[in-house]
């Protein structure tokens, strides 16, 4: 077991894949922080499902299984999905959550129809499409790893360069507009980057679970800090850590798909954060509550003593007044 592990980790091909999943986790953690702050966490889930018809159309048109083409198709249909969600919430009384659900399921339904159509048309080349459901980072080709890594790096770079602007737009769009920042444009850019992060993430963890790559590291990071900069760095670290752990475990233990393992790694980090984070974590909340209870008890105890004293004095006085009445 340990020797296979070492064989595996010294394999240069595997090192590249590890690098790829590390960068992927980093990128989606960083982007996820912004989507979390803008209360759009589930957008990632909807976009991931909405990518399916784009991927199928790209395959139908080109007839080849190329990750680059799939990504372009997925990005186009992801952008269409964001427009759809926006239009539904803007022009009808349907709320954000239902709009997300509608776009998610209808786009996915259309995608499934196309996918079965491709499979029934007897094109033997379609097996790669299935991988999109659960992800298989460990079997990525070297060129795919390059693509995933480079795209993730670009995402992180853009976030670093536009950090101040994104921060302002996320916390106070009105003020940002007052400062002369192009809020609409930046929001569109953030949305586009979310779409790209989701589409890249599908490679590693699959359609259903890609939402976790965006949400879980960001929320876990939120438990540790109040500063956006620190939170983003932490979210990136958590994302990278879960990407590497997921790929390592799923590569060494056969039978385990990469996506779920990666997601469980992220969920474990989240669990640790919920329990142990200073200030917000459950342990520290419990300690604080106990301390407060003790304080109250102590002051209440003092108060009780004072009350007892008062009562004694009153009864004394009453006694004495009774006596004087006698």
């Amino acid at each position: 077991m340990l020797s296979t592990f070492f064989n595996w980790i010294t394999d240069p091909n595997m090192q590249w894949i590890l690098m790829g999943s590390l960068l992927l986790g980093l990128g989606s953690g960083v982007i996820g922080s912004f989507t979390f702050l803008r209360k759009q966490s589930l957008l990632g889930d909807a976009l991931a499902h909405a990518a399916l018809p784009g991927i199928c159309i790209a395959f139908m048109l080109s007839g080849v299984k190329s990750i680059g083409l799939f990504m372009i198709g997925a990005i186009v249909s992801g952008v269409l999905a964001t427009f759809g969600i926006h239009a539904i919430t803007r022009y009808s009384r349907i709320k954000q959550d239902a709009a997300l659900g509608i776009v998610l399921s209808v786009f996915f339904g259309v995608g499934v129809v196309m996918m079965t159509k491709i499979q029934h048309s007897g094109n033997g080349n379609q097996s790669g499409l299935d991988k999109y459901m659960f992800g298989q980072a460990a079997s990525m080709m070297l060129s795919d790893v390059y693509l995933v890594g480079i795209v993730s790096l670009i995402l992180v770079a853009v976030c670093t360069l536009l950090f101040k602007e994104f921060k302002l737009v996320s916390f106070d769009p009105g003020f940002a507009r007052g400062m002369g920042i192009k809020v609409g444009l930046l929001e569109q850019l953030l949305l586009l980057m979310t779409v790209i992060a989701v589409v890249v993430g599908i490679q590693a963890v699959g359609v259903v679970l890609v939402a976790a790559l965006l949400i879980t590291p960001a929320v876990a990071a939120r438990y540790w800090t109040d500063a956006l900069g620190v939170m983003i760095v932490l979210a990136g670290l958590f994302g990278a850590l879960s990407g590497v752990t997921g790929t390592l475990i799923s590569g060494t233990l056969s039978n385990l798909p990469t996506g779920p393992v990666t997601v469980l790694a992220a969920s474990s980090i989240f669990l640790v954060s919920v329990v142990f984070a200073p200030g917000r974590g459950m342990v520290s909340k419990l300690l604080r509550r106990m301390r407060q209870r003790n304080e109250v008890k102590r002051s209440y105890g003092n108060g009780l003593a004072a009350v007892e004293g008062d009562r004694a004095m009153i009864s004394n006085r009453a006694n004495s007044s009774e006596r004087s009445a006698d």
Partner: peptide, 17 residues
Amino acid sequence: DASIGIVFTALFAIGVI
């Protein structure tokens, strides 16, 4: 929405595994 996303992905991952 964040709590929904965290909970269902974790449970689904456990199920798939």
